[in-house]
Design a protein around this nucleic acid. Structure first.
Length: 222
DNA sequence: GACCAGGCACATC
DNA sequence: GATGTGCATGGT
């Protein structure tokens, strides 16, 4: 089996079990961007509470957050955890957004994917996963999003060595799968779902749809 | 009460 | 260049 065939097999096993995940769970581009920062190392349920707070306060809009006091923003996003640092990170994004692009998403849409990615990564608080989530889910760009679950699943199935870095992992999926934004969208969401339900740290994978695949290694190694 | 969650920047060796 | 640490709430 080629790597591409294995990755495709994994996708189908996950999709057949879990079905479409309908990501990103946000109603607007800006909500997706905000959620991408808030969900850093954080359970999505907590992020939803923070987003609900922002909506209730009528603040889930670029100009509102840009003009808001950082302390006040921190208070609203408190349920998402790391609220001081995340308030700062959102402010960093907004400063870049307004200084360079007038706070208009249509201006970001004009940028090429590589350029947009590079610029997002230059913002303090936006790392590879956050940038790529924004690119794929807010801007519909053909970028495979890698996260801790992706690494864990890939490692347990012998697709990578433990310690493989973000770029290599992204290359693995990005260059061995059909170039299809919709597939990338669903695949990442399915990996998160499988990770949450089965492929947990120090846990066995009993009942996992990938259980029958070869090379499913002992979880304590990862 | 321990462990985990859809990371990232920064310090230190 | 690798490894360790702070950031913090809320569910299991």
């Amino acid at each position: 089996m080629t790597t591409g065939e294995t990755l495709t097999e994994i996708y189908h096993l996950l999709f057949d079990r879990f079905g479409p995940q309908y990501w990103w769970p946000g109603q607007s581009q800006f909500e997706i961007i905000t959620g991408a920062v808030l969900t850093q190392n954080t359970n999505w349920a907590n992020v939803e509470k923070a987003i609900t707070n922002l909506k209730s306060a009528g603040c889930l809009a670029p100009e509102k957050l840009h003009n808001m006091d950082a302390r006040q923003l921190a208070e609203l996003i408190r349920p998402a955890g790391y609220y001081n640092i995340k308030a700062k990170r959102l402010k960093n994004f907004l400063k870049w957004f307004f200084d360079n692009y007038d706070g208009l998403l249509t201006n970001l849409e004009q940028l090429g994917t590589d350029r947009l990615r590079t610029e997002l990564l230059s913002i303090k608080g936006i790392g590879p996963e956050t940038a790529d989530s924004i690119l794929l889910y807010a801007f519909d760009r053909q970028i495979f999003v890698v996260d801790a679950y992706t690494a864990r699943v890939a490692a347990r199935h012998g697709l990578i060595e433990p310690g493989t870095d973000y770029e290599q992992l992204q290359e693995l999926f990005g260059s061995n799968l059909p170039a299809d934004t919709k597939l990338f969208n669903e695949y990442h969401a399915l990996l998160v779902k499988a990770g949450k339900d089965f492929c947990r740290p120090k846990a066995r994978c009993r009942g996992c749809p990938l259980e029958k695949l070869p090379h499913c290694l002992e979880p304590e190694q990862f």
